[in-house]
């Protein structure tokens, strides 16, 4: 048994950076100990990054190409409370809510791997609630702007592309959040039913239930939060 091109098992691989070429030149898997589902989610998120990246680049390009001045976001997105004007107040709260939901999600993943069904479900529900609150505030923001005359084709403050990009990008992101909330609820139901403890096969997929689903759900959720940070920075702060 000479000439062994790869290491014997996943456990005695070289660690650190040297492990990468070793893993990629081994058989069976390129990412050791990474399940298929997790690999898929990472690759999907990479692709989705290109979607959001293209949206943001498109927005920046029209912001440069338009000949009408760009509205000032801190005025447009200000809230009037008791006579004073708070620039970006609602957006700040929304951002805070969404970032907090990342925290609850991370804790849910931790409790999931400890097989603490109650805590996992509660934390995931909290995440979903925060996400739903975010979407709710977005609905409020949309209706406020619409009532003030903002439309995808025109707005009272300046370049029409402001409204177009706003509705398109926040709408696309909000759809992501909404889909996330729906899936959170589905996963919560499975956690509570004990599908992941009993390895109940999925209805469509006939794959065994695993607590890892919570983590995969978490990857998506953190990504959606991260994207929001970029939208916040490029659209609202700039």
């Amino acid at each position: 048994m000479t000439d062994m091109p790869h290491t014997d098992s996943a456990t005695d691989r070289p660690t650190g950076l040297g492990g990468i070429p070793a893993d990629w030149s081994s058989d069976q898997t390129a990412f050791k100990n990474v399940s298929w589902g997790k690999a898929m989610m990472w690759i999907f998120l990479l692709s989705d990054t290109f979607v959001f990246g293209s949206f943001l680049i498109g927005y920046m390009t029209v912001r440069m190409s338009t000949v009408v001045p760009w509205p000032n976001p801190s005025e447009v997105f200000a809230l009037h409370i008791g006579g004073t004007e708070f620039p970006l107040l609602l957006i700040a709260i929304m951002t805070f809510v969404l970032i907090s939901s990342s925290g609850t999600m991370a804790m849910a993943v931790n409790f999931a791997y400890r097989r603490n069904r109650k805590a996992t479900a509660m934390l995931m529900l909290a995440t979903a609630a925060l996400g739903a609150a975010f979407v709710g505030m977005q609905v409020f923001e949309w209706s406020k702007l619409i009532s003030e005359g903002a439309r995808p084709w025109a707005n009272p403050w300046g370049a029409s592309q402001f409204g177009s990009a706003f509705f398109m990008i926040t709408g696309f992101h909000g759809t992501h959040v909404t889909i996330g909330v729906i899936f959170l609820v589905i996963v919560v139901r499975k956690v509570l039913r004990g599908d992941y403890d009993n390895e109940t096969p999925g209805f469509f997929t006939s794959r065994k239930g695993r607590y890892e689903c919570v983590e995969i759900m978490g990857l998506y959720w953190h990504f959606v939060d991260l994207v929001w940070v970029f939208i916040f920075a490029f659209f609202y702060l700039w």
Partner: peptide, 24 residues
Amino acid sequence: LLAFPALFVAGVMMLFDRLLGSSF
């Protein structure tokens, strides 16, 4: 997986232009 997103976004933006009258 990395190239189609650009077409996707271009398609969505053109749908906006055509349906909602935006000017991307």
